[in-house]
């Protein structure tokens, strides 16, 4: 039962920090940029640069480290699997043997780089969710995707759907808990039995949950109509997103970081090959 309470989607950590005050669009772009850089970087100095950026990014957010690491719990298994697979299954120069498995130099290298990359990726992107309310995030996405509107992509509708979903997830979680208890009070068993039995046992939980969700959706639609909602056209914003100086500075820093990560992070020889290739193609 406790498990349902533990699932929190919006893990916003309320505090005052520069990162909290940044425009959500900036945070989205920085996060995407950072993820991109992690895939570009292949050298150790490059990883050091990424680490430096991460320390700055998390440090400025003033979110306690233990909250950041809590997010790691969920992907711990993935992390372990990544390490194990890379460690044992990469062919190359054998360092030592362990039972029937052998660890290679290349394997060690790939495993540690992959693990670092994964940790950086998760911590780096969790800063965004820790410092941005879900609604701000949706606002940011809506605004960033705005150009797609010309291609008749339903940007406003998707943003509205996301924010409604975010609003109702905690309510439906609580409801799930209540229904579960009501059925357990009638002797229902959600814990034992094989997979088919368990799936069957979920029916008494899912039917009331779906009915309730549909009713809520219907109620909400009527309530929105009653408050003159008629889609995105003609709507104004109470708090439109406006770039401040700090946002532009952040964009500048991101650009600098990306350039550096290409210069330091890529094998220069590799880069040269790439450049010659591009030039050759141009010619």
């Amino acid at each position: 039962m406790a498990s349902i309470k533990d699932i929190t989607l919006g893990q916003y950590y309320p505090t005052e920090s520069v990162i909290h005050r940044l425009d959500p669009r900036v945070k989205l772009v920085v996060t995407l940029g950072y993820i991109l850089s992690l895939f570009l970087i292949t050298t150790v100095p490059g990883y050091l640069l990424a680490a430096l950026f991460l320390i700055l990014w998390t440090g400025l957010s003033r979110v306690p480290l233990r909250f950041m690491l809590r997010g790691m719990k969920a992907v711990f298994l993935l992390l372990v699997l990544t390490i194990v697979f890379n460690l044992f299954l990469t062919p190359g120069e054998v360092l030592f043997r362990f039972w029937k498995l052998s660890v290679t130099r290349e394997g060690l290298r790939t495993a540690s780089l992959m693990a670092t990359r994964l940790v950086f990726l998760i911590v780096g992107s969790s800063v965004m969710t820790f410092t941005t309310t879900p609604n701000h995030l949706t606002d940011g996405m809506e605004s960033l995707m705005h150009p797609l509107k010309r291609l008749h992509f339903p940007v406003h509708e998707i943003a509205m759907m996301m924010s409604i979903a975010l609003r109702f997830i905690p309510i439906l979680m609580e409801e799930t808990d209540k229904i579960m208890k009501a059925q357990m009070a009638r002797g229902a068993d959600f814990e034992s039995g094989g997979i088919i039995r368990r799936a069957k046992n979920l029916v008494p939980l899912l039917v009331p949950l779906f009915i309730s969700a549909f009713r809520r959706a219907n109620d909400l639609a009527i309530a929105m109509e009653a408050r003159c909602y008629r889609g995105g056209a003609g709507r104004t914003k109470m708090k439109p997103l406006i770039y401040q100086t700090r946002d532009l500075v952040a964009y500048g820093l991101l650009l600098l970081y990306l350039v550096l990560s290409v210069v330091i992070g890529r094998d220069l020889l590799h880069l040269q090959n790439l450049l010659t290739g591009v030039l050759a193609w141009r010619i």
Binding site: P134, S163, L166, R167, R215, D219, L220, A223, M224
Partner: peptide, 8 residues
Amino acid sequence: DNQIIGQI
């Protein structure tokens, strides 16, 4: 709960 749309 079925008519409040905003998260704050």
